[in-house]
């Protein structure tokens, strides 16, 4: 184990506790993605605070960026809505802090791009994120080649750096991807941007199996998962299922803030029910 992993694992993190408990329940985690500040601050706060009750196990909260190169139209528009309504890095951290005042167990992972963090100042960001109660970071444009930028400093603040593995990550590349990973591994189910096409089931299952041979970390699968059925199928063999664009679409299509909150939470409930039941059936194919 690397020194970095040790630092992180000295005291049990929220992510570890969460995955340990779900293992006992023999079910995958439901991970939701929403962009902080989408569509505006107050609705975004209500959306966030209602997620655990609706059945979310782990929260991914997007830090909006003007140029989200790895995102499809849904999350691009979410970022724009948030930024146009004045969302900032500081406000996103403040959202987490307020959430933590009433919830001390649900892990929160901030997801986004490096530039807003770099401009905020890496040390200041990590200190503020850690004190706000952030558990992990997913930074799309920081591959292992740039671990010294944020991944290693994050470990020193007890914040997990969640690494993405993708269909293009071959056997030669995988050790590099896993080296400083912590929290969980996020398997990107399709080569592409968020909100794109659905993954091919067979290929996905074997990719996850292969990944599992190389890491003890929990494996989450995301990109292109929209429905309860997909979530259930993938949740049979993965430790977590991530749903983002489908939730964000609910916000775009809602006519009022109340409707946005209702739609998002009701889709979450549906997904939650589905992942809770997905390993119960004796004949896995039917699931």
């Amino acid at each position: 184990m690397s020194a970095i992993q040790e630092t992180v694992m000295n005291n049990t993190s929220r992510l570890e506790s969460c995955f340990a408990e779900l293992k006992q329940q023999n079910r995958p985690a439901l991970v939701s993605y929403l962009t902080a500040g989408d569509p505006e601050a107050e609705t975004s706060r209500r959306l966030l605070h209602g997620l655990p009750n609706a059945g979310v196990d782990i929260i991914e909260l997007g830090m909006p960026f003007s140029d989200p190169m790895a995102d499809g139209p849904a999350i691009q528009k979410a970022a724009l809505r948030a930024l146009n309504n004045g969302q900032t890095q500081a406000k996103t951290l403040e959202m987490v802090r307020r959430f933590r005042e009433e919830n001390s167990t649900t892990p929160i992972v901030l997801m986004g791009y490096y530039n807003p963090i770099f401009c905020y100042g890496v040390d200041r960001f990590l200190a503020d994120a850690s004190s706000a109660g952030v558990d992990g970071l997913i930074v799309v444009d920081l591959p292992p080649e740039h671990d010294e930028e944020l991944c290693q400093p994050a470990a020193q603040h007890g914040i997990d750096f969640i690494r993405l593995a993708t269909p293009t990550t071959d056997a030669k590349r995988l050790p590099k991807v896993l080296a400083n990973a912590s929290g969980f591994i996020y398997y990107v189910s399709v080569a592409g941007v968020t909100g794109g096409s659905a993954p091919t089931p067979e290929r996905l299952e074997s990719s996850v199996a292969q990944l599992r041979q190389n890491t003890d970390l929990p494996i989450a699968v995301g990109f292109g998962i929209r429905t309860a059925e997909q979530a259930a199928t993938i949740g049979r063999y993965s430790d977590a299922v991530v749903v983002g664009s489908a939730l964000v679409d609910c916000i775009e299509h809602a006519n009022t803030p109340n409707e946005a909150v209702e739609r998002v939470h009701s889709l979450v409930s549906e997904l939650a029910e589905s992942v809770r039941a997905c390993r119960e059936v004796s004949e896995p194919q039917v699931c």
Binding site: M69, A70, Y114, V140, D141, L142, P143, E145, H146, R163, L164, A165, T166, P167, T168, T169, D170, R173, V177, V188, A191, G192
Partner: peptide
Amino acid sequence: NGLFGRFGGRFVAETLMP
């Protein structure tokens, strides 16, 4: 690593790295 002093680098999604 593609660096000119502190500039440059490879700040891309993992999918593109290989």
